[in-house]
Computed example of a mutant assay.
Amino acid sequence: MGNAPQDPTTKHPQPEFPQQDQEPPGRTGAMDPAPDHGEESYRGNGLLRDRAAVVTGGDSGIGRAVALAYAREGADVLFTHLPAEADDARETVRLVEEAGRRGLAVPCDIRDEEQCRRLVERAVTEFGRIDVLVNNAAYQMSQPEGIEDISTEQFDRVVHTNLYGMFWLCKMSVPHIPSGGSIINTTSVQAYKPSPHLLDYAMTKGAIVTFTQGLAQMLADRGVRVNAVAPGPVWTPLIPATLPDTKKFGEQAPMGRPAQPAEMAPAYVFLASEHAGFITAEIMNATGGTPLP
């Protein structure tokens, strides 16, 4: 039926899903149902023609969907992945190149400042500039028994991945982002409605909101916009790799299901495009109906 409206509650798979458990960081190919990154549905309109984008965590999930959408909108994309995610990263490269754009997969643990520095240097060497920086990579681990079970090792990993990496990459990239460029961070519904079993993760997502709003004001006079997307539950490899129960994942959203990564990508495209030229310091909520401030 072409572009006929579809019921969003039934457009994608609904719980109950098969129970599945993976070791972090998780693999796309092992997920049931398979996530939709927009492979068959996303159509570009040249909104990011000849832009140079850097996306962290672009091997799978939201990051892959953003990389695919950016490429189909005309951007070249350099993205990060962990060494264990090399297979997923190759698929993202294939999707970007299939769209006729350059796709560069760079192994990088953003918890390490020097690796972040090398990443930015690589992007500038390859592209000459960074038009769009998407800080998307994140880590979580459910601890249903509460704060007593959150080890210092886990806390460090969550904070360094979700906050330190974002801070370093913004600091190092800003000198290479021209007027008209943008930074887009990934926060979460957890920033506003924290789940107790994700306490440390939710804390970092709240910090990302504050960081985004503050940095946006700092960079406004340079013509660089800074915004964030706050997804609700999204069906990505992080879910079976970090949550003990996947059968009813996303059921709590008013729409009754989790989002697919493809449903998040348009928000990142819009915020990077000229259509959002007067939008900065904003958090775009994509929660499936959960009201946020």
Rank of each mutant, 00 (worst) to 15 (best):
V120Y: 09
E113M: 06
G181T: 06
L133E: 06
I150Q: 10
I183K: 01
T125G: 10
V226Y: 01
A138V: 11
R122P: 00
C170K: 00
V158K: 02
V132T: 03
L198I: 11
S195W: 12
F211I: 13
V106R: 06
L133N: 04
V124K: 01
Q115W: 07
I184H: 08
S173A: 15
Q154W: 09
I208D: 01
M166P: 00
Y201E: 05
M172Y: 04
I147Q: 14
Y201N: 07
M172G: 02
V226C: 07
T186P: 03
T212Y: 04
Q115N: 12
A228H: 00
R225T: 02
E148L: 13
R129P: 04
A137F: 04
A137E: 04
P144N: 12
N185T: 11
G165E: 01
I130F: 01
P107E: 12
F167A: 06
R157D: 07
H176M: 11
E113A: 15
V134Y: 04
Q217F: 07
H197F: 12
F127N: 00
V174G: 00
G146E: 12
D221W: 11
C108L: 09
E145D: 13
V106N: 01
R222Y: 13
L219R: 08
T212C: 05
P175I: 10
Q140T: 13
R222L: 14
Y201V: 09
G128P: 14
R122N: 05
A191S: 11
N185S: 14
N162M: 10
Q154T: 10
I110V: 11
R129Q: 08
C170E: 03
T161Q: 04
V134S: 01
M166A: 12
N135H: 08
F167I: 07
A191E: 02
T125H: 14
K193M: 14
L163G: 01
M141T: 02
V224I: 15
V174W: 04
F155D: 03
M166R: 04
F155M: 10
N136T: 12
A216N: 02
T204F: 12
A207E: 11
H160V: 09
C116S: 13
V229F: 05
V229N: 06
A202N: 02
R129F: 05
Q217D: 08
H160N: 15
V159S: 02
E153H: 08
E121H: 05
T161R: 02
A123M: 12
V106L: 12
A191N: 08
D200W: 02
E153G: 05
P194W: 04
A202D: 07
F167H: 07
A207P: 15
E153P: 06
Y201G: 02
Y164E: 01
I150L: 13
A138S: 12
L119S: 03
Q143M: 13
L219D: 01
A191D: 00
S179A: 15
R111N: 07
D221T: 13
D221C: 13
P196A: 10
Y164R: 11
S179P: 13
T204G: 08
L215V: 11
P144G: 10
R122M: 11
I177V: 06
T187H: 05
N136I: 10
H160K: 12
L198N: 08
D149R: 14
S179R: 13
P175N: 07
N162G: 09
V132N: 01
G146H: 11
S151T: 15
Q217A: 06
T187R: 00
E148W: 10
D131P: 11
S151N: 07
A216E: 03
T161Y: 00
R117W: 08
V209R: 06
S173N: 04
